[in-house]
Structures are given as C-alpha cells and as structure tokens.
Nucleic acid binder design. Structure first.
Lengths: 192, 192
DNA sequence: TCCCGACTATGACGATCGTCATAGCAGGCT
DNA sequence: AGCCTGCTATGACGATCGTCATAGTCGGGA
C-alpha cells in the first residue's frame, strides 16, 4: 500500500488518488498533491505536461488497476472460492479502511465520476476504461469459479454497483453497517 | 419537476440541485446557481445568510424529499405492489432521465457526499439526514407490503446502495445497461 | 573541458472562487 | 408625508485555482 522508495512521479499519482478520495476531483488542487507527495513543485509540470487532467487520469487508472489486483488476489487466499466469498473479500477491505482510518476516504472512481462526467472532462474516457477494467477483472474471477461468462458479467455489474453504493452510504452515515448488510443479503443470490 | 411560478429562493435551491448533479458540489459556484435560477444576484446573500453551505444543505434535503416522495408514489401506480416492483420503479426514473437528457446529471446525494464528507463540511450532517430520510421512506413502503420492519430496513439499504452504484456505473459508461441489469438480478431476491 | 539533457526552483499571470459592504428600490403602515 | 422592512443592485476584497515563463542545478558523454 505504501512504499518509501517510489519516484516523485509515482508519489504524485498516489497522492492524487488519496486526495481525490477525500475531497473530490475539483476539491483537490495540484499544489496540494505536490505537497502531499513531498515532491518538488517544479517537477509537476515536467512529469505531467498535460496538467491536472493528465494527473487525475493516471490516478483513476492507477486506482482501477489496484482494485482489479485486489479482486484477483482473492483466489489465492480462499480455499474454496465462491462468488459470495469474492464479494465479501471486496467489502472486507473497505470495512477495514473505515475501521482503521475513519470515513474520510471513499472510492476514487466514484469521486472522479461525480465531479467530471457531467462536466465533459477529458478524464471521463479514462474513467470509462477504469470501470470496465475493474469489472472485467471481477467477471474474470467469476468465470474462474465456473460461472458462465455472460452471467459473470452481469454479476460483476451487480457486485460493483452494490459495493459502490454501500461505500457511499457507509461514509455518509459514518457507519460501516451498509457494507455488512449488502454482503449478507447478496450472498445467497451470488452463490445460489 | 419544473414550475414557472416558484419564488427566487426556491429556484435557487432547485438550480443548486441540478448543478451539483452535473458538476459536483465543489464544481458549482454560487454565481452559477444564481444565473441558472435567473435570480437576482443580490438576493442570494439575503435568502442564504449562511452562504454556500446553507444553499447546498437545503439542496441536499430537497433532493432527499423528492426521492422519498418518488418512492411513496409507487404504491398508487401499482395494482399489486411488490419490493421488486418498487425497485424497478426507482430505477425506471433514472433510465428515463438518461434516455431523455443524457448522462450529464447524476444523483445529487452521491455528488455531495463525494465532495463534502471527507472535507469535514457542515453539510455532511444534512447529508446524513437526507440519506436516512430517503431510506426510511423506502423501508416504509416495504413495510406497507407486509415485509417485516427489520428486514425492510435491510432491503432498503440494499436497494439504495445498488441503485446508487448502478447510476454511477451507467453514467461513466454512457449506457443505462447497469440499471437494467441490477433490477433484473435483484428481483428474485427482493420478492422471494 | 564543455555541453546537453533531465530535473528542480521560483515567481508571476489571469481567472474564478466565496464573501462582504454599501447603496438603491419598492410598498405598507402610521 | 415619513419611515421601516423586504428585496435587489453593484463593486470590491482576499484567497486560491491551473498554468506558464524563466532560471538554476546536476550528472554523464563527447
């Protein structure tokens, strides 16, 4: 999650992710990102000649790959993988995040989507890539559990939608309850 | 949805809702709201001495009441109300919105949550009220269908979470498919 | 040695933000 | 008439935004 020896460029992308998660895309300034990353201020325009759009775009893609990797990691930890188990695995991380660090940080994709999609930002395209990459990873894991590909895609859509909404609900209430609820309610449907 | 004879004050709250839906809370300026509402610029500080926070707070509450009313309206239109029918009713409005007006506008509660919760805004409290008010309305409708109160609350959480996530997914992809998918997938669980 | 490329430092620009101060208008009441 | 109150008009303040221009530092190859 956190490494000490990353390049200033990588640190800026990572910091952008964290700040977008807490304050939204419009609420995050490039100066904040540079400072949070302990990166030289002059390096921003060197590494990101495309400006803030490029930075946020890379942050969104970084987050999607991180989420996809997290989904793929489930198979190694579970002795008997099931769709409901995968969903619980995805939700567990968020419960831990909320339990340990509070409710300040949400999903970066949701934050970026809320601010940028309707504004016609160029980042919207990479947001689309990000969501599809994540969903494809989840669907791929379901296929590996012998779920038929077509249904795997539908279940992946359901899982990601429900997870995202539960994250938002939990953050607003300051209570991880919604995550627990949706995991329990969806379990029979996913494994049935 | 739109009335021509509302007071400048009401128009500003309504315009704030629409602008927050498309550009997010931080992306919406008070000058934009005033102009969009065709309201006198000087009236803003008169009606909202609490500034932007007050305006956004009222917008969030307005949206919650609107959503709650929409949920309650289902019972009148359905000859044989069921939980899955209610969920489809909620999703149908969004499919129509996306079909008619495109994907620029999302859910104002999600947009406000993404921008304000992590920033420690005072609006976060009213956001909490808004979500709970909406969820209580949905749960109330379920109880009216003879769903036991405790389970009604859980199903309401599931429905709202899934709906919110599907809205986000649909907006990012520019395709209302996720809404259709989650409605179909959740139906047997909700009515079973 | 010189130079050249990658990287960093710093200051400034114009735009926009939320907020405020102040003045002007209308209409009802006494 | 005079006045008070609800509402509107307008200009400005300081802060912050994303971006840019320019100069400085550093190390390795010719």
């Amino acid at each position: 999650m956190a490494g000490g020896t990353r390049s200033p460029r990588e640190r800026m992308v990572y910091s952008a992710v964290q700040l977008v998660r807490t304050r939204g895309a419009n609420g995050t300034g490039v100066r904040d990102v540079v400072e949070h990353a302990r990166a030289p201020r002059g390096s921003f325009q060197h590494y990101f000649p495309g400006g803030k759009d490029q930075l946020v775009g890379e942050a969104v893609l970084w987050a999607a790959d991180y989420a996809a990797d997290w989904a793929r990691a489930y198979r190694a930890t579970a002795r008997r993988p099931t769709p409901a188990g995968l969903f619980a695995h995805l939700a567990r991380q968020w419960k831990q995040e909320f339990g340990r660090r509070g409710f300040d940080r949400g999903c970066p994709l949701m934050a970026a989507a809320a601010d940028l999609v309707g504004a016609g930002s160029v980042v919207a395209e990479q947001l689309r890539d990000a969501i599809e990459r994540w969903e494809a990873a989840v669907a791929g894991e379901l296929v590996a559990m012998d779920v038929p590909p077509r249904r795997a895609k539908r279940l992946a859509t359901l899982m990601i939608s429900t997870l995202e909404g539960a994250i938002m609900s939990a953050r607003v209430r300051g209570d991880a309850g919604p995550l627990t609820t949706v995991v329990a309610e969806l379990a029979p449907l996913l494994d049935g």
